[in-house]
Design a binder for these strands. Structure first.
Lengths: 259, 259
DNA sequence: CGGGCCGTTGACCACATTCAACGCGTGTGG
DNA sequence: CCACACGCGTTGAATGTGGTCAACGGCCCG
């Protein structure tokens, strides 16, 4: 973590031992890696646009001309895809350190809305400037690619959840992934503030809001989660791994889960 | 398409007008773009490993150390993710021009199996070599990023399908996307050779094999598709856009679809 | 010929959606 | 101040979509 020999944080990623795997510690998505990345982005000569956003504000809009990539500095964001026939779908949740806008690279237009779910800050960089800077700073490219790679892995996790789990397990898995995201960032994992409505969660998980509500109630009855006395969006998670065992139990048809 | 002024195909991407959008024609995924890309990759000094694969052969295995990215030169491939608790899930289908292995960049290990569904050829490149080459050849990076971007967009399409469509519509959408992939590559769109079993299709679409079978039968009854006289894996698609209207009709609760 | 794999179809059932009612907190206007 | 409406979450009962189980037919291969 500490790297006393490198007074200038900008040079860290470039200094990283460039052997073996192309992307080791500096882009594993951990808290330190994220801080490093953000550090690296500030003290560069990159044209940076900082924005403070409030719940409901858009980072970028589906269909708009692509030009910038956006990094989340703080806050929580959702990405929403819309089809020509009017279907709308929350396709991702994004935390500090995640990038938004990758889907615009190929087509030249952003593929979905990115919406703040809370107060948050994003930094936006012209894609062309990033690429240009990456030529002289290999660490930058590594960071970008790792972010894209992780995004793909997470989308696949969503697909797995959608395809193989029952509604109850899907909600549990949703919480598990959220906790995982918090853990990765060095945040508390015993408590989640759901800043989405039941309808949004249901949309994301491919189920109705009623099913989300019922699943959460069932999880609370099973003591896997607990609601704060006031506000049903404050969820405490006594044991993160209890979520995992709950999911596994719901897979096996074994001894019927009591109620 | 024709570019008489550039006798050396290797220089094309680098020559591409580097203004406006960073990635215009050369990475839109069209037949010409794919040919260009493959051309560009052959005549470079990149260490290239060509492989001919047969149905069932693995391009890369989940958990193996990441080192190479793979481009599909011909054939059809599926990617299969597996969880710790034993769930297995087809998470993507991949055609000529698609890349495999992006999910390994961040973690240093491939995230899923990539399996040939048919005879096919893949070219594998060391990731580090690609990155190194990209420094002197900006077109290469554009191609890579566009491929990643497209991959993400396609995964989101899958999620939309999974979350918002009924089983019948999901199967129709599956065929629609397949046809779209063929169309993009300049191939015939009036006929598909499903080289997956019903079970594999069902797994990919989050439903049982029986549901796939029923849905295909229903589509055939509705004259949206037709089976070849021999072999229920040969599907003819008289009108690709009929698939779209079928999907839309199944969305509106409107006039009940006659059986 | 027998066995295995694959695909189809039917009957039954369960899980999840739909529809509905209700409670709660909050903001607004009389 | 209370009344009221509104959004959000919860819960129950009815319905239906899709899963489960089973039987059957075609095909390939030993």
């Amino acid at each position: 973590m500490l790297d006393a020999s490198a007074p200038d944080p900008c040079s860290r990623a470039a200094d990283a031992p460039s052997l073996g795997l192309p992307c080791a510690a500096p882009c594993d998505g951990s808290r330190e890696a994220i801080s490093d990345m953000l550090q690296q982005l500030t003290c560069s000569d990159l044209p940076l646009r900082r924005r403070l956003l409030h719940a409901g504000d858009l980072v970028c809009r589906s269909g708009d001309a692509f030009g910038e990539l956006h990094v989340i500095h703080s806050g929580l964001f959702k990405t929403v895809a819309t089809t020509a026939d009017g279907r709308e779908q929350v396709v991702g949740l994004h935390f500090r350190g995640d990038w938004l806008g990758f889907d615009g690279i190929a087509s030249g237009r952003y593929g979905c809305d990115a919406v703040a779910l809370d107060i948050g800050e994003v930094w936006s960089f012209p894609y062309r400037a990033l690429i240009a800077a990456a030529a002289s700073r290999p660490g930058l490219l590594a960071v970008l690619h790792a972010a894209m790679s992780r995004e793909m892995a997470r989308e696949r996790e969503s697909m797995l959840s959608l395809c193989t789990l029952s509604v109850d397990a899907r909600v549990a898995d949703f919480l598990r992934r959220w906790v995982e995201a918090l853990d990765l960032r060095g945040l508390r994992t015993d408590h989640i503030t759901l800043c989405l409505s039941r309808a949004e969660i249901g949309n994301f998980l491919g189920m109705t809001l009623e099913s989300v509500s019922r699943a959460l109630s069932k999880l609370a009855r099973a003591r896997v989660i607990a609601f704060a006395q006031k506000g049903r969006r404050q969820v405490s998670i006594p044991s993160p791994q209890a979520l995992g065992t709950y999911i596994e139990r719901s897979l096996s048809p074994g001894p019927v889960t009591l109620q």
